[in-house]
Simulated assay, not measured.
Amino acid sequence: MRSPFARDDTKRAAELRQAGEAASAPFGELVAEAERIAASVMMGVHGQRRRGLGETFWEYRHHRSEDGAAAVDWRMSAKSADLYVRENEQESANTVWLWRDGSATMDFSSSRNLPLKKDRAAVCMIAMAALLSRGGERIAVLGESARARSGELGLERTSLRLASGPGSLASVEAAPISRYGRVVLASDFLDPIETWRSRLSRYAAMQAGGALLRIIDPMEEDFPFKGRTKFESVDDREHLLFGRAEEARKAYRHRWQEHGDRLAELARAYGWTLVTHRTDRPATQAVLALYRALAREV
């Protein structure tokens, strides 16, 4: 006689498998879309000379406080009153750190026909990961990967984290990266410009280059509202009520444009590239722009 516990275990296993397949379905769809995008983007040229961790001498530079005493080249430093660090040419693959914002403002879409900002950001970042991995780069998710990896294993793990990871802002603010690495941040960048200036300043100290992918929903840019309209914050703790929303359109669009212009200026100040992408437009355009931006840095 078969034990009833065996039937219960079998049923439970089937339920768990069904739940797991349902939970992973969106991930599979995101990856499939990203792969289609990556396949349509022409890859640039890799392997050019960069400062890094190789063994071939590149140049001397002045010592900085964050380098520590161990980095000082004492033979060169003894020839002058200054401290110097010996930099070498990078001979291994470059490292690119990817990040997809998981904030509440990214969990938004103004239409059923448009993706969530979070999902579009994930698709673009996974497509970038695929392109970079195929080009021999090491890739990692900022604050979520134990170490950067290359090849299929690196792509698989990176894709999973980009699709379903928390995307914490703490990762942007404090997660360690390698010196001279490259960073791609995907967000709506709605926080104040000074907040983002503070976040990006640490990458400048690490001499890391990169790009910002600004994901916006068309409603956020167009402000199509008319008549009596109530606007609520993402946590439902604050709201604004307009009797005639169209009267606020001009002022809103001015502030929106000003924020975008200041974000572009911030990116340029650090030698980065800003790519703005609306979710009602093909993701291929954004991925191609990002990839070209990174290729120019090499």
Rank of each mutant, 00 (worst) to 15 (best):
S145Y: 05
Y203P: 06
A146T: 14
H277Y: 01
E156T: 14
V41S: 11
Q90L: 10
E137D: 06
A14E: 08
G209V: 07
A130K: 05
I177H: 08
M106A: 09
A289V: 04
A148W: 06
M1Q: 13
H239L: 10
A104R: 15
G209P: 03
R182N: 08
R75F: 11
R7E: 15
E137H: 03
N94Q: 15
D9E: 14
E21M: 13
R61S: 06
L200S: 01
E21W: 10
V45L: 04
Q18S: 12
L53G: 02
D188V: 01
R51K: 12
L132M: 12
E220F: 12
V41D: 10
A289S: 01
R149L: 15
L212P: 03
E144W: 07
Y270T: 00
A23S: 12
E66D: 12
E29R: 12
A127E: 10
E15M: 05
A208T: 15
Q207Y: 08
F5L: 15
A23T: 09
K118D: 11
E220S: 12
R157G: 13
Q90I: 04
N113A: 13
E173L: 11
A264P: 10
A267D: 00
H277I: 03
V72T: 09
A286M: 09
E247D: 10
S92F: 06
A104K: 14
E152G: 08
G165V: 04
E247S: 06
R296E: 08
S109T: 14
V184M: 01
S164V: 04
S171R: 08
L190E: 10
I215F: 07
R202E: 02
R197Y: 00
G151Y: 00
E258R: 14
I193F: 07
D236C: 13
R262Y: 01
D107S: 13
Y203R: 00
K79C: 04
K11G: 05
A175E: 09
D222P: 03
R278S: 07
F231P: 12
A205Y: 05
G44C: 04
G181C: 02
I177R: 09
R268S: 12
S168G: 12
E55P: 11
R61A: 05
L114F: 05
R86H: 03
G54A: 09
R36V: 11
A295L: 04
L274Y: 04
P26Y: 00
G20H: 02
R199Q: 11
G52E: 00
T284V: 12
E29L: 12
R149C: 06
R134M: 03
G271M: 09
R12P: 07
S187V: 09
